[in-house]
């Protein structure tokens, strides 16, 4: 009875576009959905540091090195805000990290692909951050206050990342034949995984029901994917790169690009852990975490001792 009334009030707030805040009552499923989604988003930012981190030591100019390193730091910062947002739902960062490391929580599958050449630093910024922006702009209007506010902050930085990535690949596409080949190869490898970042087709997407009613998700996977494709095709054309999809063509009647079939077998395979880098990414995270244990313990012990000293004094 009580819950039915609360649920009604909750839905009324959502319908009136009033943000839900941490102290507000919320259905358990709403909380769980957000815990899962926000922590998955946080893990993605953090795991996403690895494929780009792979090229910091080999960046081809000091300027490029600094830009890349600063970009990856931004992603670490995004991880921080998102863990904080997720913590408002009553679970600690340590618990979320535990879920990541025990594979109870996922992160974006795109980061399970390797970055093989410097052109990938262009492709990742341009396509992966580009796809992330489309999703995150939409999430600025999500119903949970802390998540929506984190998205506003993050989106500003993401558009820089996208531009910087595009700058790298555009420059290479106009460079030497080898550079141009690297640029095209990077686009070939990252195109399909990038458009699959939006997730399965709406018809095959089991989680969207309540998420839409509760306005956690404001636009569907397919709508977001279409937006991304529509804005990206022209960007590839301008720099003389070819999107690796023979079925890609403008559909006058729809006012959108039509595009070919995505390989969902590959997608689910990578989600299940069989991508080229799933094991490597998780092992890296676990190793860094394990190697930092004595440091975290030392800091805690020291802080504790200092507190004791102050109490005595």
């Amino acid at each position: 009875m009580e819950d039915a009334k609360k649920l009604k009030e909750f839905q009324a707030k959502i319908d009136a576009e009033i943000k839900i805040e941490p102290k507000d009552w919320m259905p358990e499923d709403y909380r769980k959905h957000l815990q899962r989604q926000i922590s998955q988003h946080a893990h993605s930012e953090v795991i996403g540091m690895q494929p780009e981190g792979n090229w910091i030591s080999r960046a081809p100019s000091l300027r490029a090195k600094v830009v890349l390193l600063a970009k990856i730091q931004d992603e670490a910062g995004h991880g921080q805000y998102l863990y904080s947002a997720a913590e408002t739902l009553g679970k600690s960062r340590d618990e979320y990290i535990e879920e990541l490391q025990t594979e109870k929580a996922k992160y974006s599958s795109i980061f399970n692909y390797p970055t093989l050449t410097w052109a990938d630093m262009g492709a990742v910024g341009w396509l992966v951050d580009g796809a992330a922006i489309v999703n995150q702009v939409s999430l600025q209007r999500t119903s949970y206050g802390p998540y929506a506010r984190a998205m506003v902050r993050i989106c500003k930085e993401e558009s820089f990342h996208q531009r910087q990535g595009y700058e790298i690949i555009a420059h290479m596409a106009q460079g030497t034949p080898e550079q141009k080949a690297m640029a095209q190869d990077a686009l070939n490898r990252f195109w399909w995984p990038s458009i699959m970042m939006f997730g399965p087709h709406d018809s095959d997407s089991p989680n969207t029901g309540n998420a839409t009613k509760w306005k956690i998700k404001r636009e569907t996977n397919d709508e977001l994917r279409q937006k991304f494709i529509d804005k990206t095709v022209g960007q590839a054309e301008i720099i003389g790169l070819t999107i690796p999809d023979p079925d890609l063509k403008w559909n006058e009647a729809r006012g959108h690009y039509d595009f070919g079939k995505m390989d969902w077998d590959e997608f689910w395979n990578v989600v299940k852990g069989n991508g080229p880098c799933n094991k490597q990414r998780l092992d890296h995270h676990k190793k860094a975490h394990a190697e930092g244990k004595w440091v975290r313990e030392a800091a805690l012990t020291y802080a504790h001792k200092e507190k004791q000293k102050q109490l005595v004094a």
Binding site: I72, G79, A288, V295
Partner: peptide, 26 residues
């Protein structure tokens, strides 16, 4: 210091260590 990226003992320290790197490159 850039080698510390994604290897720090905490996310906060990861950022602090690579901040040093950015200063040094500057």
């Amino acid at each position: 210091m850039a080698e510390w990226c994604s290897n720090g003992p905490t996310l906060e320290e990861d950022i602090a260590l690579t901040n040093l790197s950015l200063d040094f490159f500057g």
